[in-house]
Structure formats: C-alpha cells, structure tokens
Computed example of a mutant assay.
Amino acid sequence: MAITALIIDDEELAREELKYLLDSEGGVDVLAQGTNGIEAVDLIRTHKPDVVFLDVQMPGLDGFAVLKKLLDRDHKEPLPQIIFATAYDQYAVRAFDVNAIDYLLKPFERTRVLQALDRARIRLQEIEPAPFSGDTRIGELLRLIEQQQQPQRSHSGKIVLQAHGRLLLVDQKDICFASIDEGIISVVTPTIEGHSKCRTLEELLDLLEPAVFWRAHRSYVVNINHIKEVVPWFKSSYQLRMDDKKQTEIPVSRAQTRRLRELFKL
C-alpha cells in the first residue's frame, strides 16, 4: 500500500524536484502540494497524510509554526510523519534527528530522500500514532527550536526578501512599508516587492531601526522617511500616501493618530 504524502514548499522548483524523486521511487502517493504554512495546516487536516515534506522557511507560518498550530488545536488527531526541508545547514540541528522527525537539505539528494522515506515507513509500521497534544518529543523539539531562533535585534542594515524565486538583500533605508495579509508579510521598496520570512510584523520590527519604522496600523509598518503625503480622512482620521510606484495609501489606526501628529506636528 502506498504511503500518502503532502509537499509544502514556497519554491516551485523545490516542489517539482521532490515530486519527481518521489514519483520515480514509487510507493508514494502525493495527495496535494502547498505553497505556505497556512495551506499546510488546511491540507494536513483535510487529507490526513502519512508523511508531510515541510519546508522550514516560508512566508507567514514557517514549518515550526505549522507544527505549533497543529499541536495547539488538534488534540485527538494523530500527527503525520514530518520530514523537514531546508536550504540552510543552521536549521539541520541535531534535534531533528529524533523519533518521528527527519530532515532533508536542499538541493535534495535521491539517496537522502529514500533514507527519509524508509524511516517514515518503519515509523508507520511500528508505532501507533500519538495524539498531537501527547507527543512530548515534538513539544521538546519545538522548545529547542524556539531557543535557537530568538529574533535578532542587531538592527543590521540589510533585510532578506524573497522575490521572483531569489533571496535579495535590501537596505532598510529603501523599505517603504511592510504589510501582513493572511499571515504573509509583503515588503515594498521603490523598485521591488517581496516577501519576508518573518512570521509576524512584531518579528520584522525587531530587525528594523525603531527610530525610522513605525507601526501605523495593525497590518502595516511604514518607513517614516518614505511618507510622501499625509491625507486627512473621515472623522479626524488620516491616511499615509507612500512614495512607492503605486503611491500606496495606508490607513493610520485611531490608536496611532496621536503619534502621527507628534511626528509631523499636525
């Protein structure tokens, strides 16, 4: 009987490469593919696969956040076998190499993929699935990962953005604004628009210079040096017209109106 699997990765080439390797091996039925963590949670709950090939770094919810969300909400359903995928050695920590967990480094090697599949088959045959909430090994792993992934607060001059299948280094001073929608953070500069690997705007703000970047709204962070115009709006509210190509208008929340007036002496 074939193993059922999901592939979750925000890089199309990585998904295609892994799908090709699994198809050529045989005995694996790839039920669906997803491009981000939000899709991952929905697909896992819908298809209940045996194995999930889960990218570590994705916009919005990363691989670790997907596991956390499943652990938090699903108390009775068994946890599928999770095989992490990552392009970065720093995430291939020893903690991955515990029961019910494996990892693959990109670009994928055929022998390593087959090894991970063999481990998954053994686990599926020998171990009765445990409910999410009772899997102490997974909980311990997540705690270890959290300790190793504390937000960097150095406020370095560069931010990494994913755009057009590439990882670009962008100067903070060039960032016009960032926004979050359905867990995915978009970052806009005068010339490009990309996605941040951060999971929340709070996490992104930890990387940015606090004297320059301002949380004007719960869904927006703006660079005050890229505000082109302050536009009066309804009921003593305001919008900010930015200097990006689209001259995007960003709402200012009522809670931040006072801060706006202080910034620009309105």
Rank of each mutant, 00 (worst) to 15 (best):
G63M: 03
G134C: 07
I192P: 00
Q152T: 14
I185N: 01
L67V: 06
Q172Y: 03
E16T: 13
V56Y: 01
V252S: 01
E25H: 14
R15L: 02
L13P: 04
A40T: 04
R166K: 15
G37F: 00
L22C: 01
P80V: 07
I185C: 01
E11K: 02
Q149H: 12
L43S: 04
V188R: 12
E182M: 15
R254W: 04
F84S: 08
R215H: 11
Q149N: 15
A163D: 10
C176G: 07
K265H: 12
R241H: 07
F132I: 02
A130V: 14
A2Q: 09
I3S: 06
V52L: 09
V170Y: 02
V52K: 07
I138R: 03
P131G: 10
S179C: 11
V52T: 02
H217K: 12
D9M: 03
R121L: 04
A92D: 01
V187Y: 02
F84V: 05
S154R: 11
S154K: 14
V28C: 13
S219T: 15
A116H: 03
P210S: 06
L208Y: 01
L105G: 11
I192D: 13
V231T: 07
A120F: 02
M1S: 13
P131N: 09
I159L: 13
N36W: 02
T191Y: 05
I180P: 04
Q256Y: 03
Y88C: 07
L6M: 06
F234N: 10
A130Y: 05
H226K: 13
V231A: 03
L43A: 04
D10G: 02
V66E: 01
V230K: 12
Q239C: 11
I192S: 05
R121I: 00
K245V: 07
E16Q: 12
P129C: 10
V51Q: 07
A14Q: 01
K245M: 05
D97C: 07
I138P: 05
R137N: 14
E25N: 12
D29M: 04
V160S: 14
K68H: 08
D89Y: 12
Y91G: 05
G157Q: 10
G134Q: 14
R121P: 03
K228I: 05
L207S: 11
P107N: 03
E128Y: 05
V230F: 12
S196R: 00
T136V: 12
E128M: 13
D244F: 12
D181G: 08
K106P: 06
Q90A: 15
K19T: 15
E39R: 00
E203V: 06
D243M: 10
R112D: 13
L161N: 08
L22R: 03
S156E: 12
V221S: 05
E202H: 06
I3E: 08
F177D: 07
F264C: 07
D181T: 14
H217T: 13
L61D: 02
K235H: 15
P107A: 07
L71S: 05
V170T: 02
F264E: 03
I8G: 04
L54A: 06
E262T: 10
N223V: 00
F264H: 04
A2S: 14
E77Y: 03
Y91H: 14
L117E: 09
V113L: 06
